[in-house]
Design a protein around this nucleic acid. Structure first.
Lengths: 152, 152
DNA sequence: TCTGAAACATGCCAGGA
DNA sequence: TCCTGGCATGTTTCAGA
């Protein structure tokens, strides 16, 4: 699907605030309410709009401690990889897990309450997973930028 | 603010799909429509619900190439830090930037179209920033997990 | 803090340009 | 692909428990 300038602007507005009514959007885009509505439906049908979600302020719900964990597996057989990935997906503290190239195999982004909670997580959950070789934790000091907005 | 089990369930549902109507939510939570409505408003007032957004399927809009960049500054004076941070925030390709402890100063998450686009970004934008010491790029092979849902 | 009803706004679908 | 009009559905407010 080819996105024109209006679609791109619409996607930007919705990525910024999905609560905007089609009426408000129509004013910003100089279109009728229905035209906006139809464009949104098309973007949803095409799967470009993946979903509508609420973003929670993590520090206000006691999950302000963010850790990046670089992780190696002991081997790289298909079986080990799939086992590990299936298990790590289950951990709610892990909000991101990326299989990457380079010195280690995975980058994990983990959110917990504090250092004590992280230690607990590491000892009772993460290092209990099968096939883990080594882990290296890096702690977030400050969140400079964190957006879900993709500029198109 | 203390969150009871209903608030937590409500937050989970909204983090999964914010398009659910209050009526649907009321059925899942065994509450009236108004009760759900008031709980949501309270969560918004308290800032626990930060915002409502659309999540875009990155690969469908030509931003499927994800890179993690570990970055060092040449010095750690306050001036250098603030200058760098103010500049990096402006870069739309950088969707996350975290000041971290450890061997390097920042972890950046960057989304672009492909390797060629990344090279272009690196040469014309990132390494043009002031005070940058060194960069180390790690490329994502596979996204195992990537959620905005925080389990509370 | 909850319920239920009533007022108001919005979403959504026809039909036509 | 866009617009106008209208019904259905949703949101929001309020009194009372």
């Amino acid at each position: 699907m080819i996105l024109d300038a209006t679609d791109k602007k619409l996607l930007f507005l919705l990525q910024t605030d999905s609560k905007k009514t089609t009426k408000e959007l129509s004013l910003k885009l100089n279109l009728s309410v229905t035209a906006v509505y139809e464009r949104i439906k098309k973007l949803e049908r095409e799967g470009i709009i993946d979903k509508y979600v609420v973003l929670v302020n993590r520090s206000k719900v006691g999950k302000g401690f963010v850790v990046f964990c670089h992780l190696k597996l002991i081997q790289h057989t298909k079986e080990f990889i799939t086992t590990f990935e299936n298990e790590v997906i289950q951990l709610t503290e892990v909000i991101e897990c990326h299989h990457v190239s380079g010195d280690y195999d995975y980058i994990l982004k983990i959110v917990v309450k504090d250092m004590e909670a992280y230690r607990e997580f590491l000892v009772t959950k993460l290092t209990m997973l099968q096939h883990i070789g080594s882990t290296h934790s890096t702690f977030m000091i400050n969140e400079v930028k964190n957006t879900t907005i993709v500029a198109i």
